[in-house]
Design a protein around this nucleic acid. Structure first.
Lengths: 367, 367
DNA sequence: AATTGGTTCTGAACCGTTACGGTCCTTTCA
DNA sequence: TGAAAGGACCGTAACGGTTCAGAACCAATT
């Protein structure tokens, strides 16, 4: 109130030091190393700071000098808001947030609009590292992240060999689920899966597209299915596989409808996520098909809503996955070569899978 | 490969400029203003950058110079991970993320451990503004945010007069809900509410504590109830109000149990959130009480799970709230005086509220 | 009296970039 | 042919801190 009638420019550490007649170092120490100056001086610094409206050291300037941003970036393939719609993504976020919290680090959600090729948001993100969660292999944002000179953990992605990775054995887990259905006697099945690439392709999927899928997770789940059923003598190229771009129950329902329209004889509907499976069950009910008496339905993820209806599925530890990703990233130990972590999954046999009507034996010889 | 055998220090814009024999400005322009230099030179700059492993301008240095962080900070009262458990919070996050996405801005989740008084995370956050979501009035993190010289929007908080605010009319909405119950004939009711302050107090709430509640939202909802029931001739100080620190269905159930143990005669159980209400319904069922025949149960928020069971509640536009907060913060117009936005709510009369057993008339004269 | 040790404070270098206000050279047009 | 316009590039000065090696001072020890 005394010195300057009008604060033309906001106070800085330097101006505060000048006002006090001490060095900038001392002011800095007042905030960061209280033991480096006398209590009286420190108090004087802080008092003057308050009087001048100095809000404390600027975070960005500090980050520049210390080379630490105090935050990790999260890159998602979807619109930022998608993450808050998908139960599995939410679980992942929660785990990651937990790890960040433990480390006192912020979590920066990087806007990565999949529509646009604009990767500026990745370049502008002031972070100490990145977590990349389930983006297509050819996503330009992923490429941009990999060019940044900060540690990175990819999640639900192929092992790049150059950065840490955490995920599950999608292929193995789905293989196991398929074995379960096969042992029940299912041979004529249909599949509803999530998007396989960046382009929208709501419809049947060719074997080519299955192999070339840009989403690691979906590619491997389909591959696990194909392997198991092929071994069981099923010609996988004849199995109806339907893809949906949007991931919600409505997609699950319409996908199931498309499969059932193509082949009403199928005895099991395999979905690559629980959300899709829940939609599929709605569609089955709409058609008067009883689950599992008339048709079996399976999912993947192990979300709460699925649990409540006794969905047969693969439970994956989504929260742990997020936490593991964060731990890996924030682990300050000397980085040797990139680590790769696979978390355990669990086959959950619920009330939505059973032997096909007519019994397993009856179908044992037919295709 | 030619010039330097070993890259001792990572390339910077300056070193790149030196290598090329051009000014730093030119290199900067190559990235930020392509029109400011010839295409050939720009290509040469970018090629050399690639060769030297220069990853492009450092985001933090850029932020320092431009005075823009490209991110907004979100402060939550709870552990970061809490936000991903509560449906209303998730909706808010989604809306906020949407607004950020539109603006191409990042969203930084600031770790604010409510246990510790450590506000360093607020000081360290490199952001262009803050959104504060439902923290107690006396939260030190909130105070720290308000000291930062950046625009701030508070949400579900009292109007501070100094910063923008968005919220709903909690008191009015709850008053209306109370009127609904009163008109049905309910006079003997119980309440289960969320935490009222930073300290854990799982149990009955004195009128004093109700008035002094540090959570604006809870304080106003209770106040709306008290007003309506007092007007209807009910002595509010005698109404059992139970508080729960944790916000989940288990709390709702145990809270309901505590209320019912105290007064088994109540005809309606009013919960200040849907999550609590769902728990309360579980507890009612456990006791063999049919809803709404034996007891009415109401919530607040309008979450999906409540909708599915036909919960009588107040629907509030959580997503819109988040979006509005983001819009307010990112609105670059000249800031005049702080704005205050109230979003509309809607009383949703579902299947969990009905006239008390014995009819309204019978009770019309008694307390 | 000289040395030692500890505390408190300082000076200067550095972090990597962009804003600002030029200069210089070439082209265009009356 | 000279003036004006425009394109391409540059130099300097911040941006707001942190860090580290000392300097200055004082008390205690040798």
């Amino acid at each position: 109130m005394a010195r300057s009638m009008h604060v033309r420019r906001p106070a800085t550490l330097a101006s505060l030091a000048a006002e006090l007649g001490v060095s900038r170092t001392t002011v800095s120490n007042a905030y960061n190393r209280p033991d480096q100056l006398s209590p009286e001086l420190r108090r004087r610094v802080l008092d003057t700071a308050r009087r001048l409206g100095y809000p404390g050291p600027d975070p960005v300037a500090r980050s520049l000098r210390t080379r630490k941003a105090g935050a990790v970036g999260l890159l998602l393939t979807e619109n930022l808001s998608y993450a808050f719609r998908d139960p599995a993504a939410i679980g992942f976020l929660e785990g990651l947030a937990l790890a960040c919290e433990d480390a006192g680090t912020g979590l920066l959600l990087v806007p990565a609009n999949p529509e646009r090729e604009d990767v500026a948001s990745v370049h502008r993100a002031g972070v100490d590292g990145f977590v990349v969660y389930s983006v297509p292999d050819d996503d330009p944002h992923l490429a941009a992240v990999l060019e940044r000179p900060v540690p990175t953990v990819v999640c639900d992605q192929p092992d790049l060999g150059t950065v840490d990775r955490v995920g599950i054995d999608d292929r193995g887990a789905m293989y196991e689920l398929a074995r379960h259905l096969i042992s029940l006697g299912h041979r004529r099945v249909g599949v509803v899966c999530m998007r396989l690439a960046r382009d929208r392709n709501d419809g049947f999927v060719t074997p080519d597209r299955q192999h070339a899928a840009h989403f690691h997770v979906q590619r491997n789940r389909l591959s696990g299915l194909a392997e198991a059923f092929s071994e069981a003598g099923v010609d996988w190229s004849q199995v109806p596989v339907v893809e949906r771009f949007d991931h919600n129950t409505a997609s699950g329902a319409s996908g199931a409808a498309q499969v059932l329209d193509r082949d009403p004889q199928i005895t099991a509907l395999i979905c690559t996520s629980d959300v899709l499976a829940l939609g599929a069950m709605t569609e089955a009910a709409r058609r008067g098909l009883r689950v599992p008496h008339d048709i079996s339905v399976t999912g993947f993820d192990g979300i709460r809503a699925g649990e409540e209806v006794g969905l047969t599925t693969v439970r994956q530890p989504v929260l742990e996955k997020g936490r593991a990703a964060g731990k890996l990233l924030l682990d300050t130990n000397e980085r040797t070569r990139p680590r790769s972590v696979n978390l355990a999954t669990e086959l959950l046999i619920g009330k939505t899978s059973a032997a096909p009507r007519g019994g397993a034996e009856e179908r044992w010889f037919g295709p």
